[in-house]
Design a protein around this nucleic acid. Structure first.
Length: 468
RNA sequence: GGCGCCGUAGCCAAGUGGUAAGGCAGAGGUCUGCAAAACCUCCACCAGGGGUUCGAGUCCCCUCGGCGCCUCCA
């Protein structure tokens, strides 16, 4: 079974084949850093983090570039409001962004280019487009000549006539055609700017992604990702610039787009102001980043995610249940055999992979993991040998890790190692007390340990404990 | 208006044409000194109406409802 991905360009699922064997070049449009990131951005980075992790697990060497747009109209406007330099404002939100996505457990991209550090490459590309007759200078601005690029509209499935009705020309712009878009914008007096052959100015929004993917990923891409709201005009324009400049197509073999997060019936966005920031989410609890990831996993990246406290709480409980599979790793007396468990293990991994191979069907992958959890828990109750149980638990943790879920609590790995023998001692003592029907004392031990963050659960094979 | 997406149980949600995964919540049961957890069992006329087909949640058309994009957007 091979991986199949939904390609926005063709509007169908296609078998995934890389340009270079074993290597994936993936460029994902990042964010404009002029405000705090919200959970819609979180959905985007989580979606592509999961895709990246899965590709890596399949054995691909994944080059993952994700940019920061750190100069544009909104940044300049916001900086003026706050009274600081645009670059300083952008820097602050870049730092905040990195903290936020770390809190979501997202792997840092391989390459994180910033627009302001790539000006030279953009100038070269713009000059090249002018030389090819696909762009022109007008009053210090440079525009892309849309009608000179034959394939314009192929990603968003729009005709030039459709576009014309919605096109608009800002005052002061000297476009040849309303459809043309800016590659370079002349600086207004006092604005942050870079020197160029056409006078001081700054890059247009779209050119940065074309340049950075060319510079850092070497031209043609395997995957180009981003939110659906970027299909038009951003990605359409990137295609025009890149294919015109490179003289080859496709710019990207697979265009992957995540849907939008909904809040209160409409899209969550900065301009509408109806948003929950990632910071707010993470500040609520140390585990809320993982819970949000679980919530994302229960749906699909191409289906809108509706945020509600109710579904978030459902995700919290679901994640807890998934984690129940890792409880009581060493508490099993050898009894029974692990044959059934081993069989489920193989089935579950196969189901997991089949689901993920089908355009990253994470909900289906989770279902396979729950199947495994149930088998593990049943086996633990039955008293399967520790080695069989451990193998199944290791596989569960591995597959969950492919989705970016950390099932072991921090305490399972490091913090409690030193305390473990003492906790075991207390459990043995308590077992004696219970045998002697000294329930007041045994309950006291349970309560006191719980207050210290150690939860005891009595089961048919003895008691197990875990750090909460 | 143009280009698209979606409508599956109280909630979230998957679903290659062959009588519906999974999670949460709920009901009953097992285990247990108690608690918690776990385990077992139960819980869907797939928005509505036509059509194609031996057979449709799945394909086609229409209606109703929700959403996105149409040069700020993840």
């Amino acid at each position: 079974m091979a991986l199949r991905v939904y390609n926005t360009l063709t509007r169908r699922k296609e078998e995934f084949k890389t340009i270079e064997p074993g290597r994936v070049r993936m460029y994902v449009c990042g964010v404009t850093v002029y405000g705090p990131a919200h959970i819609g951005h979180g959905f985007m980075v989580l979606s592509f983090d999961i895709i990246r992790r899965y590709l890596t697990w399949l054995g691909y060497d994944v080059l993952h570039a994700q940019n920061f747009t750190d100069v544009d109209d909104k940044i300049i406007a916001r900086a003026a409001e706050v009274g600081i330099e645009p670059i300083a404002l952008a820097n602050g939100y870049v730092d905040e962004w990195r903290r936020d996505i770390t809190g979501l457990g997202v792997l840092p991209p391989t390459i994180e280019p910033r627009a302001t550090e790539e000006i030279a490459g953009m100038l070269e590309m713009i000059a090249g487009l002018i030389a090819r007759g696909l762009a022109y200078e007008a009053g210090g601005d440079v525009y892309f000549r849309v009608r000179a690029f034959e394939g314009y509209g192929k990603l968003s499935r729009r005709s030039l006539d459709d576009l014309l009705s919605g096109a608009r020309v800002e005052i002061g712009e000297q476009k040849e055609d309303p459809l043309d878009f800016a590659l370079w914008k002349a600086a207004k007096p006092g604005e942050v700017s870079w020197p160029s052959p056409w006078g001081p100015g700054r890059p247009g929004w779209h050119i940065e992604c074309s340049t950075m993917s060319l510079t850092h990923l070497g031209g043609q891409l395997d995957i180009h990702g981003g939110g659906t709201d970027l299909i038009f005009p951003h990605h359409e324009n990137e295609i025009a610039q890149s294919e015109a400049y490179l003289g080859q197509e496709p710019f990207a073999r697979y265009w992957l787009h995540n849907e939008m997060v909904q809040l209160g019936g409409t899209k969550m966005s900065k301009s509408l102001g109806n948003l929950v920031t990632i910071r707010e989410l993470l500040d609520r609890g140390p585990d809320d980043g993982q819970i949000y990831r679980f919530m994302v996993l229960t749906g699909h990246y191409r289906t809108p995610l509706t945020w509600s406290e109710e579904s978030f709480e459902g995700a919290r409980r679901g994640l807890e249940r998934l984690r129940s599979g890792l409880r009581g790793r060493d508490a099993t007396a050898a009894r029974g055999d692990g044959g059934a468990l081993a069989a489920t293990l193989a089935t579950a991994e196969g189901d997991f992979r089949a689901a993920m191979d089908d355009d990253f069907n994470t909900a289906g992958a989770l279902a396979a993991l729950f199947e495994l959890v149930r088998a593990i828990n049943r086996s633990r109750d039955e008293g399967v040998p520790a080695a069989d149980l451990g193998a199944a638990q290791a596989k569960l943790a591995e597959l969950a890790g492919v989705l970016g879920l950390q099932l072991e609590s921090a305490g399972d790995t490091a913090r409690d190692l030193a305390a473990a023998p003492f906790i075991e001692l207390l459990l043995e003592t308590r077992a004696e007390l219970r045998k002697a029907k000294q329930f007041a004392l045994s309950d006291q031990i349970r309560d006191r340990l719980k207050a210290l963050g150690v939860e005891i659960e009595d089961g048919p094979q003895g008691s197990i404990w875990r750090i909460t």
